[in-house]
């Protein structure tokens, strides 16, 4: 399945844009996606930390990703 991953803050600089499209096997987990992203964008590993969000919620590594889910990379937040 094809998925789109939104990027914010420094993740936008790492991706070179506000989103990337990836091909992901059906029934992939958040962990699988994280692995794929780090292969393609090794600079993600230099961040202090980052999370993935699925449908506007922080996701856990074991969560399954579905086609048309809204996925985002959430680098360390710094609002306020």
């Amino acid at each position: 399945m094809k998925i789109k991953v939104l990027a914010f803050g420094i993740a936008k600089d790492i991706f070179g844009g506000s989103s990337v499209s990836l091909e992901l096997a059906n029934d992939s987990t958040v962990y699988n996606l994280q692995y794929l992203l780090e292969q393609q964008y090794p600079k993600l590993q230099q961040l202090k930390s980052y999370m993935l969000a699925v449908n506007n919620e922080y996701a856990l590594p074991g969560d399954t990703i579905h086609e048309r889910d809204e996925i985002a990379v959430i680098p360390p937040v710094s609002g306020g």
């Binding site: 914010f8 803050g9 420094i10 600089d13 230099q46 961040l47 202090k48 969000a53 922080y58 985002a72 959430i74 680098p75 360390p76 937040v77 710094s78 609002g79 306020g80």
Partner: peptide, 24 residues
Amino acid sequence: LKQTVPIWKKEIFEDGEIWVAAHP
């Protein structure tokens, strides 16, 4: 809010800019 809300702050200095808290 400062710990969990997905909002990001970039500091702009005379000689560059950084996303706050992004790197260790």
